[in-house]
Amino acid sequence: MPIMSYLVYPVEGGRGELMQSLELIDGCTVHTAKEHDLLVLVTDTEGVREEEDMQRALHEMESVAFLAMVAGYDDPEHQPEVSAR
């Protein structure tokens, strides 16, 4: 259950498009700033695979000028094992 938060800046004039794009993605909560383009985005996904999809979707959005991660929670006990060797 990864939960993460970001600061998100739209490209110039792209705030509306960015809001629309985020609305199409399950698990996104958006906090809009008063008189400012900056958004706070909180994402909540079910697992690693869904989180990967979420991050890919966010990074591919053309209306995003700047995406900075701030915080997150991910239960270490529920991580799939990976073989690094």
Binding site: A33, K34, L38, V40, V42, V70
Partner: peptide, 23 residues
């Protein structure tokens, strides 16, 4: 997580305020 991001935003833009309810 939301609060941390809002705090971070406020450190960049001291006068910024956010809508109380997330969408």
């Amino acid at each position: 997580a939301a609060s941390a991001a809002i705090s971070a935003a406020q450190s960049f833009f001291p006068s910024i305020s956010f809508n109380q309810e997330g969408e």
